[in-house]
């Protein structure tokens, strides 16, 4: 069970994330979607204590992540290539992670043998260092490494990006299995609405650091998300609150320097919707 309490992250006077409350029960497959700059990676980084919260905290299985390090043994993550060690071969990397997580070589090899399909013969025994693998293959290594040592929380940032279609389909199967069979809490972010709706039991939409939608996945979810992101959604109650909050206008002005004109217009449209 992961619980978020009054969490916010502010750089200078720009709030990039503000989540008053969020509960993620154990064994849930949890999807996070949102446009660039919505705060997805910020949230994951806070969850991994890679950045400090400005206010509030995250409680993971009873451990407050920014005061204790006891969450490390049961948490595994792959955010980006900074979670890979470029000068190791994939085997060395897996065994290194295995040793850190108290797994013997045999146990790691055993786990890897389950992923032979997934690796598609391009990872193990290739006489290549990780730095020389293609982006997609690097990603495969990073993702599989998070499964070593049976973690209870697995965090994957954009796991589907850069993967080939076959691997995407396999990965979806793996993630679904993890949550359903092993009771692992899986947190996934993605720009691909189809993949998240297929994989996740629950989807949270972030916009400018705020939760604007919290949906239990149903057959209509994909349509709902697509409507939302094309800017044609009927405003949900949460959305109305977020859009009329007094800070929204200032924030839009501040963020306009980071975003192009088009997206600024987009937020303007959003502000107008409540009146319709």
């Amino acid at each position: 069970m992961i619980t978020v309490h009054e969490l916010s992250k502010t750089y200078k006077d720009q709030t990039v994330l503000n989540i008053p409350h969020l509960d993620i029960p154990k064994g849930q497959s949890f999807g996070l979607v949102g446009n660039n700059g919505a705060g997805k990676t910020t949230f994951f980084s806070l969850l991994l204590d890679l950045i400090q919260p400005s206010t509030g905290h995250i409680d993971s299985h009873g451990v407050v992540v920014n005061t204790s390090e006891d969450w490390k043994p049961f948490t595994a993550a792959f955010i980006d290539e900074s979670f890979l060690i470029g000068y190791l071969t994939p085997e060395e990397y897996f065994y290194f992670i295995g040793e850190l997580r108290g797994q013997s070589k045999a146990e790691v090899s055993d786990l890897l043998s389950n992923f032979e399909d997934f690796f598609h013969g391009e990872i193990l025994g290739q006489k290549k260092y990780l730095r020389d693998l293609s982006k997609g293959n690097q990603k495969k290594v990073g993702i599989v490494a998070t499964f070593i040592g049976s973690p209870e929380v697995v965090i994957l940032d954009e796991p589907f990006a850069n993967l080939d279609p076959t691997t995407q389909i396999r990965l979806k199967g793996i993630i679904k299995d993890l949550a359903a069979k092993s009771g692992v809490t899986v947190l996934v972010s993605s720009h691909d609405l189809m993949h998240v709706t297929e994989v996740c039991e629950r989807i949270v939409v972030l916009e400018k650091g705020q939760i604007v939608k919290d949906i239990v996945t149903a057959p209509a979810t994909l349509k709902e998300l697509e409507d939302y992101f094309s800017g044609a959604a009927a405003p949900s109650p949460i959305e109305t609150v977020a859009a009329t909050a007094s800070t929204t206008e200032d924030k839009a002005a501040e963020e306009s320097k980071f975003e192009d004109k088009a997206s600024e217009d987009h937020s303007a449209v959003n502000r107008d919707t409540p009146e319709k």
């Binding site: 204590d49 890679l50 955010i79 980006d80 900074s82 979670f83 060690i85 850190l100």
Partner: peptide, 12 residues
Amino acid sequence: SAYYPLMMSQNI
């Protein structure tokens, strides 16, 4: 430095 986030979030 290239993989410091890994070192900081791993069981180390």
